[in-house]
């Protein structure tokens, strides 16, 4: 019976992962397909990969995407981390107000967030890369705050006090005592912001104005005309890069935990 249960659970998990990864598999296969058609297999080719760097449209959209994603997630991380520290030491009533406001972009529908930001931006600044970056910061800051805040809450204040009692300046004590504790939260907040920004379509779509394209918005305009197969190749590369990066972070992280465990 137990064996049956184990087999059934493994089968179920496998099916769910098949469901989640099937489209990705399809896209990877398409990136090697020597045919413009999406449904016909025309043989194996690497030409979409080779053509990639000479496709100016795609390279420009990639550049814009990277610029927007990196700038917005770095700013969101700085703003969110300082905000989390500030919020942590606020009076309870103020904390509740700030957290309520922080929840708004998370709970609001993307389309409403995108439209409301567009309505604001059109009044003050021409829509373009800058407005998209502002919009991305707006929806990714909450992820940083909610990743950092629990770290601060589990931090013992006594350590910081001990450090200052022993003569450390508050800055030095922060750097030596608080920062190492909250850093994993800052890092996961940053990665969340990065992922959300990269994967966003709706908010970018409404705040970008004419002429600016990220990979998502470019794809959206190409849906009717047909997708350039180079985009499958580019997405495969990005996916495999992310896969490698996250794998390294994950196993490095767990290896470090093991070391700490052994030392204890």
């Amino acid at each position: 019976m137990n064996k049956f249960k184990k087999g059934a659970s493994s089968l179920y998990l496998a099916l769910i992962f098949l469901f989640l990864y099937a489209p990705i598999l399809v896209l990877i296969v398409l990136s090697f397909n020597d045919s413009m058609s999406r449904t016909v297999w025309g043989g194996f080719t690497l030409k979409w990969y080779a053509n990639l760097s000479s496709n100016d449209n795609i390279m420009e959209a990639l550049g814009t995407t990277i610029k927007i994603t990196l700038t917005s997630s770095i700013f969101a991380t700085i703003l969110g981390t300082t905000a989390a520290i500030g919020i942590h030491y606020m009076k309870k009533r103020h904390t509740a107000i700030m957290l309520g406001a922080t929840n708004i972009p998370l709970l609001n529908a993307d389309i409403v967030t995108g439209i409301s930001l567009m309505l604001l931006f059109t009044r003050f600044t021409p829509l373009g890369e800058f407005s998209v970056i502002l919009a991305h910061i707006a929806f990714s800051v909450p992820y940083v705050i909610f990743n950092v805040l629990p770290r601060l809450q589990s931090l013992s204040e006594a350590c910081f006090e001990a450090a200052t009692d022993l003569g450390a300046t508050p800055m030095y004590a922060f750097y030596k005592v608080v920062w190492p504790e909250i850093f994993p939260g800052v890092l996961s907040g940053f990665l969340m912001a990065l992922t959300m920004s990269l994967d966003d379509f709706t908010i970018t779509y409404f705040t970008k104005g004419a002429g600016v394209n990220t990979l998502s918005t470019m794809l959206y305009t190409q849906l009717r005309k047909g997708i350039q197969p180079e985009l499958y190749a580019l997405s495969t590369i990005l996916f495999l890069l992310a896969f490698a990066l996250l794998l390294v972070i994950n196993f490095k992280g767990s290896a470090r935990k093991e070391v700490v465990k052994n030392e204890k």
Binding site: Y21, P23, Y232, L238, A242
Partner: peptide, 15 residues
């Protein structure tokens, strides 16, 4: 579960 998000959302739906 986060990893699929690194393949563009529009492309995944297209798939």
């Amino acid at each position: 579960f986060i990893l699929p998000m690194w393949m563009n959302f529009m492309l995944r739906i297209l798939a």
